[in-house]
Simulated scan of single mutants.
Amino acid sequence: MIKSPVEFFRTLPKKVCPECGQTVKEQAESYLMECDRCLSKKME
């Protein structure tokens, strides 16, 4: 049976930072994979 789009997006797993394993707070229109902490380390 085909899921509704709402149900599909509701059941997606949380995005996890590949560097540290922390759950990434998702934002609309964001394609970032790392968490804010790991991103700020890369900017230094």
Rank of each mutant, 00 (worst) to 15 (best):
E26R: 11
M33D: 10
E19F: 03
E29T: 00
K41R: 09
E26Q: 12
P18K: 05
R10Q: 08
P5H: 12
V16G: 02
E34W: 01
K3S: 13
S40I: 08
L39F: 03
D36V: 08
E29N: 06
E19K: 08
V6E: 10
L32S: 07
V24E: 02
Q22D: 10
P5Q: 12
P13R: 15
T23V: 11
I2K: 10
P18I: 00
K42D: 01
R37Q: 11
R37V: 09
C20Q: 05
L39D: 08
L12N: 13
K15T: 06
P5V: 15
K3G: 06
D36G: 04
M1L: 14
K15V: 09
Y31W: 05
K14M: 06
V6K: 06
S4E: 14
K25P: 13
M33V: 12
T11V: 12
G21N: 04
C20F: 05
L32E: 04
R37L: 10
I2Q: 10
E44F: 06
P13N: 13
G21R: 01
E34N: 03
Q27I: 00
S4D: 15
E26W: 07
E34S: 02
C20A: 04
P13E: 11
K3Y: 14
Q22S: 09
C38N: 02
E19C: 07
P5W: 11
C17R: 08
D36N: 08
F8N: 10
T11G: 11
C35H: 03
I2H: 10
L32W: 01
G21C: 03
D36S: 09
R10T: 09
K14Y: 06
M43V: 14
V16N: 04
L39N: 12
V24G: 05
L32M: 01
M1Q: 15
Q27C: 05
E7F: 06
T23I: 09
C35T: 04
K42Q: 08
V24N: 01
C17I: 13
C17M: 10
S30F: 07
F9I: 12
R37K: 12
E29F: 14
G21K: 01
T11K: 11
K14W: 05
C17H: 14
Y31M: 01
L39C: 07
S40G: 03
M43F: 05
P13Y: 09
D36A: 11
V24D: 01
P18F: 08
K15M: 01
S30L: 00
P18V: 04
K41M: 08
V16P: 02
L12I: 15
F8E: 13
K25E: 08
P18G: 07
L12Y: 12
C17E: 13
T11E: 14
K42R: 10
K25T: 06
V16I: 15
K41H: 07
